[in-house]
Design a protein around this nucleic acid. Structure first.
Lengths: 215, 215
DNA sequence: AAGAAAACTAAGCACTCGCATAGTTACTAT
DNA sequence: ATAGTAACTATGCGAGTGCTTAGTTTTCTT
């Protein structure tokens, strides 16, 4: 599909849960909904089981602990976000085009998957220490992609900011925070938000108005 | 005191907890720490009481319910943030100066009070519906201050953005998200972060480089 | 059709939760 | 000194928590 801003977006049906069976999948989706709505500690395994249409004990046939549910969701979410960010760069060659695509898709991902993103971004503290460390490594890779693209644009002379780290921080921060407030059915869509934030970020980077709108 | 960017900042000892007595105060501070560290649902009243050096039952001599603790903290936090934002505008007259001060102080507030901010921003969903509504009214006033200042700058010709709502959204979002990741002792300080974000926002607003650095 | 494996349920254990009750101590006003 | 009040503690109730065990049903393999 080709979106209104001319970017080619691949199908949204990338498989979040990997090789998980249908029972396991229903539980993960119920857990995702429950964690997003009431937080990890606020959601009970009985809530999750009921939402999946199962008895409380059935959850433990598929997942060893409640924390394992959160870990599986966090892992899937971070992998999906990292993939989205890497895929954004596939067909872009100019610094402006690459950063625009990066910001657009990172922002849109957080809107499109806002429940998943909320769990992934705000329930990290409930993970076991070693699980959290593994997730944080994945996250750092995403952060490095953003930093590298901004640095490349500066090196090529396309951007003229004096604070590349600050812009990278802002890009990540704006994207993450979308998952806090975004609700479908409001005035924003993932694509409209992606376009707006991409334009704002290009302004932060000191691109002139022509190159910023022409991509 | 006068900070390195020339802004006058009033003393940081504004009284968060109002007329609360010393016992009540110790409980509120313990609750704030516990809620920030483990979330509202993850923190028990026994945790809070122990951190305040009291028996579990003593908490209820000062606060009717656990939710009341969260409500009191949320109210104090939102009032403090709104005050900070209004105070930022007191001595500024130019559009660039006002927006710079606004972004600077809103950002710095979230860094300086990052534990409070975290509870205030991320535990809203745990409030009782009527309490949440009251808090959201306070929050909307803060949002309107930001929107109004940007609109005023556009009307006066000082800014030339095509997306004032997007910039306002970004200002609030960047500020709020600081409380998610900020930790004292790192490479950032409230003031350094405030200055960086203020500069980025002025770039979003299309101010030229001279007026953006000269204020 | 027969046996194995997977996917479930009913019941409940050991524990923690928010909160209440009854009683004790510390302080203040007169 | 005495009475009244505010600030506490010890104890525990009823509900809900994550998770286990034992047993049943369904599905797959051959």
């Amino acid at each position: 599909m080709i979106s209104e801003n001319g970017r080619v977006t691949t199908s949204a049906t990338d498989d979040l849960w990997g090789e998980a069976g249908p029972g396991s999948r229903r539980i993960l989706e119920a857990a995702l909904t429950a964690f997003a709505a009431r937080g990890y500690h606020g959601a009970s395994t009985r809530d999750i089981a009921a939402a999946a249409g199962m008895s409380p004990a059935a959850v433990y046939a598929h997942h060893r602990t409640k924390e394992d549910l959160l870990y599986a969701i966090s892992l899937a979410g971070h992998r999906s976000a990292l993939t989205a960010v890497e895929r954004a760069l596939w067909e872009e060659v100019t610094p402006v085009g690459r950063v625009r695509a990066l910001v657009h898709d990172y922002t849109a991902w957080h809107a499109r998957h806002h429940l998943l993103a909320r769990v992934v971004q705000y329930e990290l503290g409930a993970l076991a220490p070693d699980h959290r460390d593994e997730i944080l490594r994945l996250r750092r890779r995403t952060e490095e992609v953003v930093l590298d693209e901004i640095a490349a644009g500066i090196a090529s002379g396309a951007f003229r900011t004096e604070d590349p780290d600050g812009v990278a921080l802002a890009v990540l921060s704006l994207g993450v925070d979308v998952s806090r407030w975004y609700a479908p059915g409001g005035q924003h869509t993932p694509v409209s938000l992606g376009r707006r934030y991409a334009t704002l970020v290009l302004a932060m980077l000191g691109t002139d108005h022509r190159s910023a709108t022409a991509g």
